[in-house]
Amino acid sequence: MIRSVAKIFRLLIVILSLALLWQLVVFMFKLPDYILPTPLAVMYTWIANFSLIWQQTQPTLAETLLGLFFGALTGIISALLLAMFKPARLWLIPVLVISQAIPTFAIAPLLVVWFGYGEASKVITATIMIFFPVTTAFYDGLRRTPLAWLDLAKTMRANRWAILWHIRIPAALPALASGLRVATALAPIGAIIGEWVGSSHGLGFLMLNANGRMQITLMFAALFSITMLSLALYYTMDWILNKTITWKM
């Protein structure tokens, strides 16, 4: 409890110092509002436009969470396939690598063409970005079960599915957890990229819109909200994972 309070406190200090530095830079170089607004101005705008921003946060949050869900799900399933079936290893790994060699940014417009301006294209963008780190982390964990545990299970006449369920998967959970942490950090980026490329709502849309109208303070306010959203998501995920997976490998 004390440690988590200290953690939050430390985070606040870091944010405040960065804001102070920012304010100082604007003040020293006499930058106009439309180049770099002060953090205070951004804060005022954020409060003044809170209902608008909150309204635009909801679709982005929904896309992020759905992307996270589907990305994690496909990642877990493909890691299990890789671990359990040799043909999957031979055929799926090239597909995985190719899927990551194509820049998400480049195919995001295509996804909008295929899946429309709605949430689906954003969810898919996020899913594509997320499933790879989840797959590699979990697959790595599944491959690194200590040999002694596998030998022991073998002398206990366990079949490979029992070994998978009772030993290999739990042993790989800490690795999966680090994959999920990376995924949680990536998910909002996926959703925002999707929104930039083409959308009619969401924080990414709000940013572009504000930018186009030279409402730079509002753009920063939206950016601030995205950052807050990402941080909140990351720390929630981190907390859940730390509570549920208490062992180290």
């Binding site: 200590p146 002694a148 545990w149 006449r157 366990a158 029992a162 009772h166 959970l173």
Partner: peptide, 24 residues
């Protein structure tokens, strides 16, 4: 074996019963 191979996510009793658990 030399390494005890106890599974850290199971408690003492569950570790003792690992064989039965694996065989269901």
């Amino acid at each position: 074996a030399q390494t005890d191979s106890l599974l850290p996510w199971l408690n003492t009793e569950q570790n003792c019963l690992l064989g039965s658990r694996l065989r269901g």
